[in-house]
Amino acid sequence: MQTQHEEVPHPHFMIPLKYTVGTLISLLVLAVTNVIISQFDLGIYNIVIMFGIILVMATLDMLFFMGFRWERGFHIMMFLSGFVFLFIFLSFTLSDIMYRNATDPYKMQPYGIKNLVKPLPAGGEHSERTEHSE
């Protein structure tokens, strides 16, 4: 049942050596740069620069090591969809975590599990809620 292998040229592409060597060197340089920058305190810029370098490294890895520069668009889309859905996961979860302590319009203080249950005052008459509800 097995067919003889036909000598049809594959749609394969051999990545030119200059790209692979270039990528290797730039990745190593970037990794070292990242470490060096992290030794200095630049405030908010530390994390910005760090993520910038990570993204450049990741892009280089995908473009030239995984060969996406010469890949079919569909395959790239397929692979990147993983990151898209990861972003969905992250952003929606963050939309919960970030706003969980949003301000309660009635009490003018944050929501939050710690604040929700309060022991009744010794007099035991009423919470502040009734004062504001009118």
């Binding site: 969905i88 929606f92 939309s95 919960d96 969980r100 949003a102 599990i113």
Partner: peptide
């Protein structure tokens, strides 16, 4: 279907903002 999972969590302590979107 990937954007609606929070509707299982309306009373779980999830933020009202997230619940609204979901």
């Amino acid at each position: 279907g990937f954007l609606v999972w929070g509707h299982h969590m309306y009373i779980s302590g999830q933020s009202q903002f997230a619940a609204l979107i979901f």
